[in-house]
Amino acid sequence: MQYELNFSAADLAQTRFAVSPMWEVVTSFRLLNAETDPPLHGRWAAQVRPRLLRAGLDRGWLAALIPGGGYLADFLNPTPAGPFPELDAELAAIRRSSPENVRADLATIAMKDRPAGRLRLLHEDPGAVLEKVADEIQAYWELALAPYWPRIRQLLEADVFHRARQVAEHGSAHVLNELHETVSWDAGTLRMVRRACALTRAQTGPGLLLVPSAFAWPRVLTRSVAPDPLQLAYPARGIGTLWEPRATKATDAVAAVLGRSRTLLLAELDTPASTTQLARHSGLSAAAVSQHLTALRDAGLVTGHRAGRSVLYARTAIADALLTPVG
């Protein structure tokens, strides 16, 4: 089915882009909650699912609010105030959600196969329960997304910068027509096809917010809550290469500066890993790995993220650049 939304010149002038951590939370959890493995994200899902199971996040508040398919609660995706909001800012907006909006979302969610008890508690006392929801989102972020965020954010920012340049060169209409096969723009009308639920212009405020997503593929997802602008979360460019191993051919040059052991650990961190895993793969002792990781973290080359009783270490974009051959 096709839906047509009429936009004014003022709406088009207010079109903007934003990278939203919460859209990545919602869409990534939805993929993990689906019945089939995500074809583009299998490598990531294989690493993340065991952590979520150990933490019990497969049966918590997010499992109740984010199904493998169907309607998504709009209050989980507040309108970003700027182009690159931090997760903390979006969690604060979720905590401020009005009880009326939360209950309206819950009324839309199909109760089948959902933990009705949790949703009932949220309906009865949104203010108190939203604190628990936000805490669980933070826990999910640390386990599933934070160790990978530099890589994901780089992809999303590259999409925004590419499309912003396209707007400057060809105009907003061109960018909207290139956004996704189910979206088109013509003479002030935005057309969307193959949506699961109805969408009208009266449901949205002025402007249009375009949100690239690493996990929304293969569809475009929307948020339409007046007086906020319509949000379109669309698959970012280059998703197919997101989880490919990154080149580390410059290790000899880096080893001359950092030393062999630290360079080896950076190369091993193509995917996030714990101290124990790195010790097993590198042949170094756990104590030596810990010492090297501390030095690398102090230098801004790795980050640490709490995952239950262990810490997952990940390479930063600076380290990626060091390990990438020049020319």
Results as ranks from 00 to 15, higher is better:
T204K: 00
T204V: 07
G205R: 03
G205S: 00
P206Q: 07
P206M: 07
G207N: 04
G207T: 06
L208V: 05
L208A: 09
L208P: 05
L209Y: 02
L210F: 07
L210Y: 00
V211I: 12
V211N: 00
P212W: 06
S213K: 09
A214N: 01
A214D: 03
A214C: 10
A214R: 05
A214H: 05
A214L: 03
F215M: 02
F215K: 03
A216G: 04
A216Q: 12
A216P: 07
A216M: 07
W217D: 04
W217F: 13
R219K: 12
R219P: 01
R219A: 15
R219V: 11
V220E: 06
V220R: 02
V220N: 04
L221F: 13
L221M: 09
T222I: 05
R223L: 01
R223E: 07
S224L: 03
V225L: 15
V225M: 04
A226I: 00
A226K: 11
A226E: 03
P227W: 02
D228Q: 14
L230T: 00
L230A: 06
Q231M: 15
L232S: 00
A233H: 12
Y234Q: 01
Y234N: 13
Y234L: 01
P235V: 14
P235K: 07
P235R: 08
A236F: 11
R237N: 06
R237Q: 12
G238A: 11
G238W: 01
G240T: 13
G240H: 14
G240W: 08
L242R: 09
W243C: 13
E244A: 15
E244W: 10
E244C: 04
E244T: 09
P245I: 09
P245H: 11
P245F: 11
P245Y: 11
R246M: 04
A247M: 04
T248K: 08
T248D: 07
T248V: 14
K249W: 12
K249E: 13
K249V: 10
K249D: 13
A250Q: 11
A250N: 13
A250G: 12
T251L: 12
D252Y: 04
D252W: 09
A253N: 01
A253F: 14
A253K: 08
V254S: 07
A255V: 02
A255R: 06
A255W: 10
A255F: 10
A256C: 07
A256Y: 07
A256L: 10
V257F: 14
V257N: 03
L258T: 05
L258G: 06
L258A: 09
L258P: 00
L258W: 12
G259L: 11
G259N: 15
S261A: 15
S261W: 07
R262P: 01
R262Q: 15
T263S: 10
T263F: 05
T263M: 09
L264T: 12
L265N: 08
L265C: 04
L266V: 12
L266I: 13
L266D: 09
E268V: 02
E268G: 02
E268C: 15
L269M: 14
L269G: 10
L269W: 06
D270R: 04
T271P: 00
T271W: 12
A273L: 11
A273I: 02
A273S: 10
A273D: 02
A273R: 14
S274V: 09
S274E: 08
T276E: 15
T276Q: 14
Q277K: 13
Q277Y: 03
A279I: 08
A279V: 05
S282M: 08
S282F: 06
G283Q: 08
S285W: 02
S285F: 00
S285M: 01
A286H: 11
